[in-house]
C-alpha cells in the first residue's frame, strides 16, 4: 500500500479497462483518420470524471459517434474480437433524442463497466452511439454470434436495464450481415 499513489486510493477498480473513442465525420479524410482514441479508464471514479467532463451525446453534431470498447478492441467490424460478432441495436426516432438518448447511453455504459451480464459479460466487446439526422442509434457489440445463450442473455438484461416495454422488440444483427447488406436493413439473427 505504501507505493500506491494518493490519487489511486479509495477508487473502485473495474473488471476491465475501457477506451473511449470519438468519431467526427470529415469527408475530406478517410474513415480511420476521423476516429480518435480519447482516453482509457479502469475505475468507477475515473469513469464519472470522464462522463461529467465530455459533451452529452445529444449535443454532438450529426455524423459523430462515441464508442466505448474494452482495452485492446478497436471500434470496428474488422477487429479480430469483433468480426465474428454482432450487435444489439436500439434505433431512436428524432424526437427521442431530447427525451431518451442520453439516458439510454448512460444505462448502456453502466451495464458495461458494472459487468451487468454476469459471466456472459466476457462476450461484450463495447458499445457505440451514432448521432444522425435521420435517427440516432445505440448498439451493444458482442464477440460471437454463435454464442446464442450469451447473446440472448445480454439482450434480455439490456432491454430490461433500458426500461423498454415488453411490447418493444429489439434485434441482434451479425456484423458480417451488416457489412454485406444490399438494402438499408440488415436481418435480425435474434430478437428479444
Amino acid at each position: 500500500r505504501d507505493v500506491m499513489p494518493t490519487d489511486q486510493m479509495d477508487k473502485h477498480p473495474l473488471q476491465n479497462r475501457w477506451a473511449l473513442w470519438f468519431f467526427k465525420n470529415d469527408k475530406s479524410k478517410i474513415w480511420q483518420a476521423n476516429l480518435r482514441l480519447v482516453t482509457k479508464f479502469d475505475t468507477v471514479e475515473d469513469f464519472w470524471a470522464l462522463h461529467n467532463h465530455i459533451q452529452l451525446a445529444s449535443k454532438l453534431t450529426s455524423g459523430c459517434d462515441y464508442s466505448i470498447f474494452k482495452d485492446g478492441i478497436e471500434p470496428m467490424w474488422e477487429d479480430n474480437k469483433n468480426k465474428r460478432g454482432g450487435r444489439w441495436l436500439i434505433t431512436l426516432p428524432k424526437q427521442q433524442r431530447r427525451t431518451d438518448l442520453d439516458h439510454f447511453w448512460l444505462e448502456t455504459l453502466m451495464c458495461l463497466i458494472g459487468e451487468a451480464f454476469d459471466e456472459y459479460s466476457d462476450d461484450v466487446c463495447g458499445a457505440v452511439i451514432n448521432i444522425r439526422a435521420k435517427g440516432d442509434k445505440i448498439a451493444l457489440w458482442t464477440k460471437e454470434t454463435e454464442n446464442k445463450e450469451a447473446v440472448i442473455h445480454i439482450g434480455r438484461v439490456y432491454k430490461e436495464r433500458l426500461g423498454l416495454s415488453s411490447k418493444v422488440v429489439i434485434g441482434y444483427q451479425a456484423h458480417a450481415d451488416t457489412a454485406t447488406k444490399s438494402s438499408s436493413i440488415a436481418k435480425n439473427k435474434f430478437v428479444v
Binding site: P13, Q15, N52, M110, R161
Partner: peptide, 18 residues
C-alpha cells in the same frame, strides 16, 4: 477468478459522492 460487478445503484451513488 472473481468478477468485479457494480449494480446501477452503487454506480449512481459514486456519481453523487464528492
Amino acid at each position: 477468478g472473481t468478477r468485479i460487478i457494480y449494480d446501477r445503484k452503487f454506480l449512481m451513488e459514486c456519481r453523487n459522492s464528492p
